[in-house]
Design a protein around this nucleic acid. Structure first.
Lengths: 192, 192
DNA sequence: CCAAAACAATAACAAATGGTAAGAAATCTA
DNA sequence: TAGATTTCTTACCATTTGTTATTGTTTTGG
């Protein structure tokens, strides 16, 4: 739980009294591999903050291929903002790759928290903007050849590259696992 | 200028007195084809709102290829948020494809406007969230084959597809103009 | 209106990526 | 630990996309 308040304190100052109040707005959930936090077709009711483990948000397209929108490990948020805000059924699944623990909070509780501790709203705005910028970077990356996308992923998220199964990385990069395997071999053969 | 206040009024209510005050925060700029609103290496100081014409935000990668992040036509915003917030030199160019007129506003003026008319801050938050969701959709689209990306683009932005040169559309989809031409032919040959 | 520039289509060939299948290696789990 | 599952690699071939070059058309700007 300290992970959450630390994340907030990295961006905005908080009084000790407020730090102590924050956990009360969240609900803790233990997670295990393959568990769903959100299923396609359901309305997304929570924002999740990962305390331990690893989750992914993905869509299953018409051909059954899974396209990964986001991974989330310790200290990261994950939700389907579209469904959350619109109240429409989600197009995404959020599931657990590595069990652990997440915190969850409803929109109503989050708004209550914003009202009670305005600094948290500021924190939320800041991480939202950072998220927006990260999505832009990813779009530019996806316009480049697969080998560059992979190199970019490894250099930006070295801790994910080693932690995730490679076919999950492939689904994030928008290529097949076989292609990723080939790219890795090619890179391994390169002179230093 | 009514285009701006109409855009705001679509998302939040405003008193007549406030509607009248809003233009004062912006500066109007006439634009002509090929003009730069932001050059790579410069710090981005403005957010732009397009009143007439068409702009694009793009990066020039190491090989000289132009990757388009965004188009912006009447009623749309465009800026480099990253450079704007960080004060770092921008990696992007924003230039004019079709001359016309834009409004521009600095961060400071925008924040002043938020303070003076809180409903505008709410409007800004709403369109930011919509922008975030649109970027997510685009990421998923970029994980699919080029022909699907193109079909998706045409069905989502029919007014852009007819208005833009095809090589600009190609740069947005992450393919070469030649590939786009092939895809168009393929689609034209399809049975109805 | 005219000359120059930009744009679009096409072809032939090259390179990258996907699909399928098979098997090896690693990891879970009972 | 043993069996089952998942993960990873590799090979072969098909498809998609990129590259280069050529041609003709359209648009731009003086």
């Amino acid at each position: 739980m300290k992970l959450l308040t630390d994340s907030i304190l990295q961006h905005v100052p908080l009084r000790d009294a407020d730090i102590k109040r924050i956990p009360g707005y969240f609900e803790s959930v233990r997670t295990r591999r393959r568990q769903f936090l959100l299923r396609e077709g359901d309305v997304c009711r929570y924002e999740f903050f990962v305390l331990k483990g690893c989750c992914r948000q993905y869509e299953k397209d018409a051909t059954g291929k899974e396209n990964v929108l986001q991974f989330s490990v310790e200290g990261w948020w994950i939700t389907d903002l579209d469904s959350m805000l619109s109240g429409q059924p989600s197009l995404f699944n959020i599931d657990v790759l590595e069990g652990g623990e997440v915190l969850r909070i409803t929109r109503q509780q989050l708004e209550q928290l914003f009202n009670d501790i305005p600094a948290v709203e500021r924190y939320y705005r800041i991480i939202s903007q950072r998220g927006y910028i990260a999505l832009q970077r990813r779009i530019l990356s996806l316009q480049k050849p697969a080998i560059e996308r992979y190199r970019g992923f490894v250099s930006r998220y070295p801790f994910l590259e080693t932690r995730l199964p490679q076919h999950q990385v492939a689904a994030y990069l928008g290529i097949t696992p076989e292609s990723l395997s080939r790219l890795r071999r090619k890179i391994a053969k390169e002179p230093l």
